[in-house]
Design a protein around this nucleic acid. Structure first.
Length: 887
DNA sequence: GTAGGGTTAG
């Protein structure tokens, strides 16, 4: 009956027949027949059957024609086919179909089960390759190795299709050891002549950071004459991985000119970033031209790379032109533009593109968001960056390592410790993977960012704890650099130098880079640690011979001038192969600090001849130099010309400098007049300049006025209280002194203790006021007492107003004699070679009495005394000081 | 029938 129906009836009828056999609990036999019939007629159509097939109890006795099942690819079909081929004794013939079906339906475990039972044969290696390829594309390089080892242990021989996949897995794991041993296997098994396999080797070495090996393999291919375009592309890509864009470009050039290879899409997307990273816009333009002529520019990858190349070369107009003409744009095209504008500091353009992306329903990805966050961070708009981060999270976009590092730099730019901590929490929750024994490369980037953030947000101790928590073997040069830099800028510069030395001792293999060296030099400059600075300089010369990096050289100029040796700063400057605006201003600042205004102005003139256009900072430095050298007329002249002749409008800092200039020269009326003429509200620095001048010239009324303005703006500054208190003390207004001292006590403002240190023969010795902790303390005080006696005899009179106490004059004198700079000087005289210069650094301004005493002392000793205070340098020699009273 | 080289954020 059923047979008849099969011949004549429709699918619907057959189904009905089937259903009735279930409902009527018909004989098993009939049920089997109904399934067979349905399958025979309608093998794929029947959803109902698919669900029935999984019922193995029913299927175990049904015989289904194999042809009906061959083309199916669901797991259920595969299982049925598997079962039927066993039943019908066809498994061996059908195994490969089955494996394919299992792989296609993501059931690799079944596929492997079958492969384990199959006798190895070259033609069936195909299925292992399929499995391996699948694992690779799913991003599981470890599974690739498991499969590779499994197939070998079962007696299969990998072929020339297998190896490229496995090499790629090595590359993804960046495991040179796996890659190299696989390379050995390949050479032994006679695949050395297969260009596909060899190209994969080149690529693997490149991605594992073994550039030399990659190039050797490539040379080998060339030598045997079997290299093709992919070989060239692979080796160029290897150089790009090693960030050697110069060689990449040279190879590309050789490939196109000498070997007459015609670049393809991949050659172009390889070489355009090389042009970009070198800002070689001319070469980039040539490549762009070629891509237009060859029509390859229509490829979205090429188009994106061209846009990015122009953007990185700072040619946003060109980038935009290409972007506009692109037939097909994807999110990368937009990102390249957003990033370009953001990097060029044209954040408004970036933001408007960002908005257009939203309007045009282009899905923003993590790169888009990160580019905007970075744009804000670079501008110092940390709050906006954090807002964008929140928006990003709200939109469901997952921040990654780069986003977090950018966000941390945004926190740094606004000193937002709290937001930094929030970011830290976020990192722990979602980004950092701290389960393993040691942090991965991505983890380390975030940890480095966190150390940097804590150090720069005034939490050097937390930063140090994090630094210590990273095991020395896991630290990279950035880890060391951010910690050293944190100490140099925001913590104790001594710690920075200690850590810098410790780095060499702890890890012989670690090499400081230009950032590390700059941070160490910043610390030296802070401490005026000339000897340490010279050692760093020597290290630079030994290890970076002929290529002292611009940044480092600028720091050397700063270090030498701040350590009292501006002449060596000039030598460093003279020997620089290239200079930027910072080099010039650093040198001018150096001369300014030492009161060598004439030299500063000479440098300014030379700078204009280069020619370099002076900006706001240049003028600030020039005015500073004039003011510290007493060159009042020059200063006034520059101040008047800067806006008129150079188009640079003076800011509050320029006004402060002018107030300083008038004030030091004792022309307080003119200083006050200038403040009144200011087009903007005076900032604290302006009032500090006036207050200092009032202290210098004993003007109580104006001093009080300045101090009150200052305290309105920032009440927590101990310096302003001290200055005012000194003014009162000088006028013998002890009640006012007491009032100030009371206010300070009440509001918890503490006067920073004065501290001086001196470059001794063995190291640095540090002194506080009245310090008796030094082992040679007794000799130091004796030397000092002797000196004071001797200079009193030649006319020195202690200027008691500098002692901040309402006590009788004799006692004040005693306190004065214990000032840290005097102690340091006595120690220097006691321990240094006769005639060796004595280099002293003080954290605050030198006290007036000390200045007078040291001037006298320089008359009776043979040493030159070079003293740096918080404002400038004083070179004492033969009874006079280089500051000529301008301090 | 499978394979090698690729764009954007720090």
């Amino acid at each position: 009956m059923i047979k008849d129906r099969v011949r004549t009836e429709t699918y619907r009828d057959a189904i009905m027949q089937h259903q009735s056999s279930i409902a009527g609990k018909q004989l098993h036999h009939r049920y089997r027949c109904s399934i067979s019939m349905l399958l025979r007629c309608f093998p794929i159509k029947s959803k109902l059957l698919q669900s029935q097939f999984t019922n193995t109890r029913l299927l175990s006795c049904a015989t289904i024609p194999i042809t009906a099942l061959k083309e199916c690819n669901s797991l259920a079909h595969a299982k049925l086919l598997h079962q039927q081929s066993i039943m019908q004794g066809l498994l061996f013939h059908l195994a490969t179909n089955l494996i394919g079906t299992y792989i296609a339906s993501n059931s690799t475990a079944y596929a492997i089960l079958l492969l384990e039972r199959l006798p190895p044969s070259p033609s069936s290696v195909f299925w292992w390759n399929q499995l391996i390829r699948r694992a690779l594309h799913l991003g599981s390089p470890r599974d690739v190795f498991t499969l590779y080892r499994q197939m070998k242990s079962l007696g299969w021989t990998p072929d020339h299709y297998t190896f490229p996949f496995v090499f790629k897995a090595c590359a993804n794991l960046s495991s040179l050891s796996l890659g190299a041993s696989l390379h050995a296997t390949v050479s032994r098994s006679g695949f050395a002549s297969n260009v596909f396999v060899c190209n994969a080797v080149v690529s693997m070495y490149g991605k594992c950071g073994a550039l030399r090996h990659a190039h050797n393999m490539f040379d080998d291919l060339c030598h045997r004459g079997i290299q093709d375009l992919v070989s060239w592309n692979s080796v160029v890509s290897a150089y790009m991985w090693a960030s050697d864009a110069n060689t990449a470009l040279a190879l590309f050039h050789k490939m196109t000119t000498r070997h007459l290879m015609s670049p393809d899409v991949i050659s172009l997307v390889n070489i355009l970033p090389a042009c970009a990273s070198l800002a070689a816009s001319l070469r980039g333009r040539q490549v762009h031209g070629f891509s237009i002529r060859s029509g390859l520019v229509d490829d979205v990858f090429v188009g994106n790379a061209v846009v990015d190349m122009y953007a990185k070369c700072g040619k946003m107009e060109e980038a935009n032109k290409v972007f506009q003409r692109m037939k097909f744009k994807d999110v990368v095209s937009w990102n390249a533009m957003v990033t370009g504008y953001s990097q060029a500091g044209r954040l408004e353009h970036a933001l408007s593109l960002f908005e257009r992306m939203t309007e045009e329903n282009i899905e923003l990805d993590v790169v888009t968001w990160t580019a905007v966050i970075t744009g804000y961070a670079q501008r110092g708009q940390g709050c906006e960056a954090l807002d964008v981060f929140r928006q990003m999270c709200d939109c469901g976009s997952r921040p990654n390592v780069v986003t977090l590092v950018s966000l941390l730099s945004a926190c740094v730019s606004v000193g937002a410790l709290l937001h930094g901590k929030e970011t830290h929490c976020y990192a722990i929750k979602f980004i950092l993977n701290l389960d393993g024994p040691d942090p991965g490369a991505d983890d380390l980037k975030v940890i480095n960012g966190l150390i940097d953030m804590y150090a720069k947000c005034q939490s050097t101790e937390v930063a140090r704890k994090m630094f210590d928590s990273v095991s020395p073997k896991d630290r990279d040069v950035v880890t060391w650099t951010v910690m050293i830099g944190g100490y140099a800028q925001h913590g104790d510069a001594n710690n920075a130098l200690q850590l810098f030395s410790g780095m060499f001792k702890m890890d012989k293999s670690i090499k400081p880079n230009d950032f590390t060296l700059s941070c160490a030099l910043v610390a030296c400059a802070r401490l005026a640690a000339l000897r340490f600075g010279r050692q760093v300089h020597a290290y630079v010369l030994r290890n970076f011979y002929g290529s002292v990096m611009l940044f480092v050289a600028n720091c050397l100029i700063d270090m030498y001038s701040k350590s009292g040796d501006v002449d060596t700063a000039q030598i460093v400057f003279d020997n620089m192969p290239q200079r930027n605006a910072v080099s010039w201003t650093s040198l001018m600042t150096g001369y300014g600090m030492h009161g060598r205004g004439e030299d500063a102005l000479r440098v300014f003139d030379e700078m204009r001849k280069v020619p370099l256009v002076p900006d706001g900072i240049t003028f600030l430095v020039v005015l500073y130099a004039c003011s510290h050298s007493g060159m009042v007329d020059h200063g006034i002249n520059f101040f008047n010309r800067m806006s008129k002749d150079f188009g640079v409008d003076p800011g509050p800092e320029h006004y402060a400098c002018m107030v300083d200039l008038w004030g030091r020269a004792g022309r307080l009326g003119e200083a006050m007049k200038l403040i009144n003429e200011m087009p903007m509200e005076p900032t604290p620095v302006v009032w500090v300049a006036l207050l200092s001048a009032c202290r210098l010239h004993s003007n109580v009324e104006l001093g009080e006025f300045a101090a009150n303005r200052l305290l309105e703006l920032e009440s927590g500054n101990d310096g302003s209280y001290t200055l005012l208190s000194n003014i009162y003390a000088n006028a013998r207004r002890w009640k006012d002194v007491a009032r100030i001292r009371y206010t300070m006590k009440r509001t918890g403002i503490k006067k920073r203790p004065g501290c001086s240190w001196i470059q001794g023969r063995k190291g640095v010795a540090t002194f506080y006021v009245g310090d008796r902790s030094h082992p040679q303390s007794q000799q130091i005080y004796e030397t000092l007492a002797d000196l004071i006696q001797r200079i009193k005899a030649i006319g020195y009179v202690p200027q008691t107003s500098f002692a901040l106490h309402d006590v009788d004059d004799e006692e004040k004198g005693d306190l004065l004699f214990e000032h840290s700079e005097k102690l340091a000087l006595a120690y220097g005289i006691l321990t240094l070679h006769p005639r060796a210069p004595i280099r002293i650094t003080k954290n605050l301004r030198i006290c007036g009495d000390c200045h007078s005493a040291i001037t006298y002392i320089s008359k009776i000793i043979e040493h030159e005394i070079i003293l740096r205070d918080s404002s400038r340098f004083h070179h004492f020699k033969n009874g006079s000081c280089s500051c000529k009273g301008y301090w």
